[in-house]
Design a protein around this nucleic acid. Structure first.
Lengths: 210, 210
DNA sequence: CCCTCCAGATGACATTTGTCACCGAAACCG
DNA sequence: CGGTTTCGGTGACAAATGTCATCTGGAGGG
């Protein structure tokens, strides 16, 4: 059964969302080669992707996570909320347990890494279209390993601290007192087992907790 | 003998280097669509890319910068050293003046960003093959704007500091005294107009000085 | 109503960081 | 040879950071 030859009738219709134009176009080319998949729209940010999906009702949406306007995870969550039938494949650079967790919570059917073999993308589209899930194997195991221990405030504060802002600046940014900011930071540092704010921020980032 | 000989007369032979398998395959697909370009090898890291170029002597090498083993800039520099005829196009995510500068110094013929339109890649390959240069327009202007003001020591120290290491740790890592590390850091901070080590590291990174 | 549970705030303290002026040993140069 | 960089180190001080114990004023919740 060579899909490229016989099956011209039921194309799997796909929308792709990816902010790097070069990669977006290339992925589209990659999928168009397959005879059984058709790219019906390309979006370079999350909002466009959402609109495109609502308009075209494709079988599958392939989306990056980190994009302008709206993140791929947000798009997935919004589609779930609207009970859209389109299945979502997250395609990202980052092997972060936190991202995978959020993706699954948002009802995504697939989570693939950009450093997988290119051939696996089309295959994943087919499997997901059949109702199966496709999760990157190495991530699948450790996925539910640890939950984000940070509170919202701690996250906010840590984000700014990671950019090199001083406690005082962070405080006025968030409308808190400097002492309070230091308290949150201290708490975050100890939760993450770090030695200082910078290390804490780094750790949180690599876990996908940002 | 071969009926295709007439139309396929001179393919532009290309090697692509990119560590993300998905992107690598996709870019290859993108170029293969063009009738006048042929991808003769794909490499997942800099060393493979270098070998592939030496072996196939393609007209053009398209390479990412940040890859395992050897960076795309290193590959370009090595090819220049060996007086290889292959022209190099750097294809990267990062619009950093420092990267562009190093690319040009390494004799690269092109510097493209992954968020350009996908169609421009094939066009760039053709132009570069004709001996022209293709530089991302927005970068071209500011390219030679400012040189890296940091010394080697300052760079090393800043790199570690940016990862959250404490002065003492950095000192023992580099076999220096803690006071000296603080001096280098202080110097770097003032050179970059930053308020602290973290901000300094961030600035240096975005400029491509790392 | 009382009790608890927050989010924030304070104050005090030790440690780390950032700054600066200055010292000493190569190395280099005329 | 004397003079000047360059690289690293000291010491001292102010400022920022990290830690802790403790206080406050709600907002629930029974």
């Amino acid at each position: 059964m060579n899909p490229t030859v016989k099956t011209a009738r039921k194309l799997i219709r796909v929308v792709i969302a990816e902010d790097q134009g070069m990669v977006l176009g290339a992925l589209a080319a990659l999928l168009e080669i397959e005879g059984d998949i058709g790219v019906v729209a390309r979006s370079h940010n999350g909002k466009e992707a959402l609109q495109a999906v609502l308009e075209h009702k494709p079988e599958v949406l392939i989306t990056d996570i980190e994009m302008p306007e709206m993140t791929g995870l947000d798009v997935a969550a919004e589609l779930k909320r609207r009970r859209a039938s389109t299945r979502v494949i997250i395609l990202t650079t980052f092997a972060r347990a936190g991202y995978l967790r959020r993706a699954l919570e948002a009802g995504a059917s697939g989570y693939l890494l950009k450093d997988m073999r290119a051939e696996e993308l089309a295959e994943a589209v087919r499997r997901v279209h059949q109702g199966l899930r496709v999760i990157d194997p190495e991530l699948a195991t450790e996925a539910w390993a640890e939950a984000d221990p940070l509170t919202d405030r701690e996250r906010q504060v840590l984000r700014l601290a990671g950019d090199g802002k001083a406690s005082g600046d962070i405080a006025s940014d968030l409308g808190l007192s400097e002492g309070t900011v230091r308290n949150y930071l201290s708490e975050a540092i100890s939760k993450l087992g770090a030695n200082n704010r910078v290390e804490a921020a780094r750790i949180a980032r690599t876990k996908g907790w940002l």
